[in-house]
Amino acid sequence: MEIDYLLVVLLSSLTSASVLIIATLGLAVIFGLMGVVNLAHGEFIMFGAYTALVVTRSGVPFSIAVIVAALVTALFGAIVERVIIRRLYGRLLDTLLATWGLSLVLYQSAVLIFGSVTPGIGMPQSNVRIGDYTISSYMLFLLGVAIVLVLALYWLLTKTGYGIVARAAIQDSETASAIGIESGRINTMTFALGSGLAGFAGAILLPAVPATPGMGFAFVIKAFLTVVVAGPVTLTGTVLAGGLLGSAANIVASFWTTVAGNIVFFMLTMGLLRLYPNGITARWNRKL
């Protein structure tokens, strides 16, 4: 095997891990940090994708559309938290069922509004040559986006006042209220943050993953498994688990079939969970 081929496989593994990490970060905040099982996470991604699509079609540049999509999805998330999630804190399985219901409502609404097939946004395709092979430059760009996004989120949650207060509220809401933190407001903001990240993911991935009503289902499985495998040290865990699972699945997929890649992803998760039922970072001593 030539070196350029290996390099391409490596890069494409890294980029598909990046795609997974980008799609998972929102869930890492909502499920990993807040402990809210949001099965509609995939549909939040779809929500962002369609928002970006609609905004781009109306003539706004794609880069601005991505930001708009993130903000709109965050707002939508805030409403969902106020109307549904808030009543269900502490009732894990009920949250799961309700958000599942929500995911179906969003899916079907998307089918009704946009139909089941939508055109892409027609970004100019450009590729980077590596020896005899090429790799999409947008995919390489996504690798950078993933790195920037993870660092930004880490900064937000560890360095800013909001981040510290939010982490306190999530870790122990009773004690948080006992030092003056109004957990209700903070929880809405954090849920909105997670939703916004999902919306951002849907939008930024749009050139690589076209918007379809069912796109959420594909993401939600892997995102959940990644966060569950990640464990309590959410952000670092997510990056590690996402990197490992995403690239392993990609390697199998590039040598064999996508389905085989998916199956490997699933089997690997099962194996990791059997070894680390509470996630790979369960015994780690880190803050995020």
Binding site: I164, V165, R167, A168, Q171
Partner: peptide, 12 residues
């Protein structure tokens, strides 16, 4: 708060 640092506990 177990996963906040000492100073972060105070800062919160």
């Amino acid at each position: 708060f177990p996963r906040l640092t000492v100073l972060e506990n105070v800062a919160a």
